[in-house]
């Protein structure tokens, strides 16, 4: 079976983000990139699935982006993915554009099972996996914390408000991974050396027009210092007044 994992790279969560001079993108200078953490769960689940079903299964990792994404793809190869595809795109794409490019590639590779992270922690749209499923007419289970594949049948547990639900569906399908699905492995040193010899295929991403446009990007306002109104119960009336009239929260 052919399994695809769609991965994206995101700024390291420890990075201090700066807005670029165009006020529409982040300033890439000094930013270190990592695999989107949810995508690591997706990679791990794909590798586990491959190990379980054995045979001549292949795990592809696919990403849309520029040359800088290669390092991230290399890391996925080091974890154990078999082949990587970089869909090159010079212009920024919105979620639909990215999903279209990925869906085209998944179709041409003939992958029946697709893993994505439930969202990427940079733009946080959280819809790419679902869009791909829609475009390919695949089944889709999102925010998955437990996954089983028996023959064609998928049993997946997903997180819902206040609990979990168990969903049954079948291949072909897109699964989006939530934290808790598994414990992603480290790339072993042997894996890193082997990844050196694996191929990252480069293809142009299919062109598509964007449905959305970023008009402006700005940092959240810096937090105002707190105010102490008093330290005993005499401060309560003033606190209530301010919560009502100034903060407008009660």
């Amino acid at each position: 079976m052919k399994i695809a994992v769609c991965i994206s790279q995101v700024p390291d969560t420890a990075t201090r983000i700066k807005i670029g001079s165009d006020h529409k993108s982040i300033d890439p200078n000094g930013v270190t990139y990592i695999i989107n953490p949810y995508d690591e769960f997706a990679i791990e689940e794909a590798l586990k699935t491959k190990e379980k079903i054995g045979g001549d299964s292949i795990v592809y990792v696919i990403s849309v982006g520029d040359d800088s994404v290669k390092e991230t793809l290399r890391k996925a190869l080091a974890m154990g993915a078999d082949e990587a595809v970089l869909l090159k795109s010079s212009s920024a794409k919105d979620s639909i554009g990215i999903a279209k490019a990925l869906a085209e590639e998944i179709k041409s590779l003939g992958c029946e099972l697709v893993f994505c992270g439930k969202q990427s922690v940079d733009y946080d749209s959280g819809i790419t996996g679902q869009l791909i499923a829609e475009m390919l007419d695949y089944n889709c289970v999102s925010v998955v914390v437990d996954f089983k594949l028996e023959g064609n049948k998928i049993t997946a547990e997903r997180e819902i408000e206040g609990g979990r639900e168990v969903v049954e569906t079948e291949l072909p399908a897109v699964i989006t991974a939530q934290k808790g699905l598994n414990e992603p492995r480290y790339a072993s040193l042997k894996g890193i050396m082997a990844a050196k010899k694996k191929i990252i295929a480069e293809k142009p991403a299919v062109d598509s027009s964007s449905f959305t446009e970023i008009l402006d990007m700005h940092l959240p306002p810096s937090k105002q210092p707190g105010r102490i109104l008093g330290t005993d119960k005499s401060a309560v009336p003033e606190l209530v007044r301010l919560l009502r009239e100034e903060a407008k929260v009660i």
Partner: peptide, 14 residues
């Protein structure tokens, strides 16, 4: 090299 960096980063994370 890229591999040397990747190995270092992997062990650092470990």
């Amino acid at each position: 090299t890229d591999e040397e960096r990747m190995i270092r980063d992997t062990v650092r994370e470990f």
